[in-house]
């Protein structure tokens, strides 16, 4: 067996065994079906709800909120992160604010945002935005700091000043760290968004799980949780596909190492 096939086998053996055990033990009635529905039934429910039920609408709403929150967080977060990594005064100005708000659970701000923006889309988008925003500021700042100073010196001597400094020197230098930060930022956006929907929204993936829970629709609860996990995997996959396009000069081995970071 080639090493990569072997690694793949190692990565998937346990998950597949677990899924098989789940499927057979629930089919055989070893586990209480009220709490542990049959795996294939969960998948059937998920597909059925997506096609016929409200789940499709919920999912589209969640994705739409996620995109808005992430786009806003990425643009503002990278801008502020680069500024505070580059200039010490900016760093000192925003440091107390990021230090206080970064560890604050953003879900606790949901009531406040509902007061400000009303019960519309705004409150959920902003709650998710707030999570990704601080995450992206902090990781971008870190990548800017990690750029070796001799690289900056050399670049300046070769005439990378003004806007060229950012487009030709700084962004290529921080790109790997930046992409990793954006990936993490998008994942945290998703986590907070679904949690916020669970707590206080009428529609959306999180709200659907809450609703199903109140109606004791166990299969739908599971279907929702599986979908949330799949969305998280899709984010990772998307960044893995985008990375070689944005960073053609990076060797695959380096890329894998960068992508593995949690």
């Amino acid at each position: 067996m080639s090493p990569s096939v072997y690694r793949g086998a190692q990565a998937w053996a346990i998950p597949i065994v677990l899924l098989a055990v789940w499927e057979t033990s629930t089919r055989a009635g070893l586990l209480d079906p009220r709490f542990f529905p049959v795996l294939s039934d969960i998948l059937v429910t998920a597909v059925d709800q997506l096609v016929n039920g409200r789940l499709g609408l919920d999912l589209v709403l969640t994705l739409q909120r996620l995109m808005m929150a992430f786009a806003l967080a990425a643009v503002l977060g990278v801008a502020i992160g680069v500024a505070s990594g580059r200039w010490r005064t900016v760093e000192l100005l925003i440091r107390p604010i990021t230090d206080t708000l970064y560890p604050l659970p953003k879900i606790a701000l949901l009531p406040l945002f509902i007061i400000i923006f009303g019960r519309g889309e705004g409150a959920y988008v902003i709650t998710a935005f707030a999570t990704g925003f601080f995450q992206i500021i902090i990781s971008t700042r870190g990548s800017v700091r990690d750029v070796p100073s001799d690289l900056i010196e050399a670049g300046r001597n070769f005439g990378a000043t003004g806007t060229r400094f950012f487009t030709r020197l700084l962004f290529p230098a921080i790109a790997p760290g930046l992409l990793n930060g954006l990936r993490l930022g998008m994942a945290t956006c998703l986590i907070t968004l679904v949690a916020a929907e669970f707590v206080g929204a009428e529609y959306g993936l999180g709200a659907m799980i809450r609703r199903a829970g109140q109606q004791f629709a166990v299969e739908e609860v599971y279907a929702g949780i599986v979908l949330a996990g799949v969305l998280g995997l899709l984010i990772n996959l998307a960044f893995r596909l985008v990375t070689p396009i944005v960073l053609p000069w990076q060797r695959p081995a380096q890329r894998a190492a960068g992508g593995q970071k949690v």
């Binding site: 690694r7 190692q10 990565a11 998937w12 053996a13 346990i14 998950p15 677990l18 009220r34 709490f35 994942a187 998703l190 986590i191 907070t192 679904v194 949690a195 669970f198 707590v199 999180g206 799980i209 809450r210 199903a212 829970g213 109140q214 004791f216 166990v218 609860v221 599971y222 929702g224 949780i225 949330a228 996990g229 969305l231 998280g232 995997l233 984010i235 990772n236 949690v262």
Partner: peptide
């Protein structure tokens, strides 16, 4: 085998907000 396999499972579970398991655990 344990390490890589568990890693796959955890990578799937990690981005799911923990609070989603609350309805199930209250059942």
């Amino acid at each position: 085998w344990m390490e890589r396999g568990t890693n796959t499972v955890l990578a799937f579970l990690y981005p799911i907000p923990g609070v989603l398991f609350f309805p199930f655990l209250t059942f």
